[in-house]
């Protein structure tokens, strides 16, 4: 059964490109354009992994991860945070919130696929 990955990013381009890559690798994809949108989509459906930007309008990535980790059905779901090279402080914050995996922007789809396959079984 295909695993489901949620992409949370305010860039439609990013969602689309990463989405194409993940679907190509056999995953189901759920898209959300910011933290708030993403929380709304954590409606009990099974999500195996979340790819999440830090800097987003409405609700930023760190806040989203904190909220998500408090939800029984998603507290153990792995998160890949998208960060910038200058985001060391943000990284600390994300670590505290429970995010362990990071991919630095800009990245190319194969890098994302590598990171994903380190975290979840096919």
């Amino acid at each position: 059964m295909a695993k489901t990955i949620m992409i949370v990013d305010d860039s439609a381009t990013l969602r689309q490109v990463v989405g194409i890559a993940l679907k190509g690798a056999g995953y189901e994809v759920v898209e959300a354009c910011d933290g708030k949108d993403a929380l709304g989509k954590l409606d009990g459906r099974k999500i195996h992994l979340i790819v999440c930007d830090v800097n987003m309008p409405n609700m930023d990535g760190i806040t989203f991860v904190k909220e998500m980790k408090a939800m029984a059905g998603y507290k153990f779901t792995p998160v890949i945070m998208l960060t910038t090279e200058a985001g060391e402080a943000k990284k600390q914050e994300g670590q505290m919130a429970g995010a362990r995996a990071w991919v630095v922007k800009p990245f190319q789809p194969p890098q994302m696929l590598n990171a994903v396959s380190k975290l979840i079984l096919p």
Binding site: K75, F76, G98, R100, A101, S117, K118, L119, L121
Partner: peptide, 17 residues
């Protein structure tokens, strides 16, 4: 590790690739 959302099995499988 597992509480943090990290599954040991997936790392080992990835190593296998």
């Amino acid at each position: 590790v597992m509480k943090n959302g990290l599954d040991p099995a997936s790392f080992i499988r990835y190593l296998g690739t």
